[in-house]
Amino acid sequence: MRILHTMLRVGNLDRSIDFYTQVLGMRVLRRQDYPEGRFTLAFIGYQEESEGAVIELTHNWDTGQYELGTAYGHIALEVGDAYATCEQVKARGGKVVREAGPMKHGTTVIAFVEDPDGYKIEFIQRAT
């Protein structure tokens, strides 16, 4: 068994795709409209689906916004330099909600950004 993808419901698919591709550097792997069901699925990631886990963005055409709830945590991405990655995100118009620095009660360097729908993405700096 392996993890295939994580699904996020988004209110504006184009805005979300722009964030994940332009701000975080992922690419659209596939996208399909389902007119009878009134939804679109877009799969994005850094690798092909056969090589690693990806994110499925689900856009229900009649829903412009979702409540995130209190159970959702975050998606974690490994980065080489969390400080530099935060600066790149800000330069590309992204929102850093926790600047890079050591985690509480530890030494691992982390940071958090937020996508257009409010989902949190954690950057974990690769140990050297």
Rank of each mutant, 00 (worst) to 15 (best):
A53D: 01
I55C: 01
V97K: 07
G64M: 08
V79G: 10
F19R: 05
H5C: 02
D62S: 13
G101M: 09
E78N: 07
V97T: 15
V10G: 04
A71P: 00
G11P: 03
P116I: 00
S50F: 05
A42M: 07
G101W: 11
F112T: 05
F112P: 07
T85V: 14
A71Y: 00
M103N: 14
A84S: 15
D33Q: 11
C86M: 09
R126Y: 02
T70P: 04
L8R: 04
A76N: 12
Y83G: 02
H74V: 08
D33W: 00
E99W: 09
A127T: 10
T21H: 02
A84K: 15
V89D: 07
F43T: 09
H59D: 12
T40P: 01
Q65L: 05
V113W: 10
Y34G: 03
E122N: 07
V54E: 04
Y66G: 04
L24R: 02
G69P: 07
F43S: 08
G64L: 12
T58M: 11
Q47K: 14
L77W: 10
R92Y: 10
V97M: 03
Y46W: 10
H5A: 09
G37D: 15
A71I: 05
T108M: 12
Q47M: 02
D14M: 05
N60S: 07
M26C: 03
F112R: 07
R98D: 08
L29M: 13
A84H: 11
V28E: 12
Q88I: 01
Q32V: 13
H74T: 06
E99Q: 14
A100I: 11
T128N: 12
G118F: 03
D62V: 05
E87F: 03
D14P: 02
E36M: 11
R98S: 12
L4Q: 15
A76S: 15
G101F: 07
T108G: 08
G11V: 06
P116T: 00
A53E: 10
W61K: 06
V97W: 02
Q32E: 15
A53V: 13
F19Y: 13
E48C: 04
G52K: 04
R15Q: 13
E36L: 14
V28L: 12
M26N: 04
I124T: 15
